[in-house]
């Protein structure tokens, strides 16, 4: 199987910190910001372990607010 590498962009201002993307991620790439909040006061999602991302898009698909854009390359 070809190796893949993914990355995501989170629209942190749109994010509501619901954590559904964190839960959906099979590689534990994502986490909620521990201290930082966006303008609405939500602890937004970010890539805590960016190297782990496989670009599967599960996070983007489950995000109710459409905050996540996913990219993937075959290495």
């Amino acid at each position: 199987m070809a190796k893949v590498k993914g990355t995501v962009l989170v629209n942190t201002e749109r994010c509501k910190g619901c954590e559904l993307c964190v839960e959906a991620c099979p590689t534990k790439t994502l986490a909620l910001a521990k201290k930082e909040v966006n303008d609405r006061g939500y602890h937004y999602a970010y890539m805590e372990n960016p190297d782990a991302c496989i670009g599967c898009a599960a996070c983007g698909i489950v995000c109710p607010d459409g905050c996540i854009t996913v990219y993937k390359v075959k290495l």
Binding site: K5, T7, G55, G60, T69, V70, Y71, K72, V73
Partner: peptide
């Protein structure tokens, strides 16, 4: 290097 239009797999409709 990954964030390029041709590598896009998911975005908000």
């Amino acid at each position: 290097e990954i964030i390029k239009p041709e590598n896009l797999v998911y975005t908000k409709p």
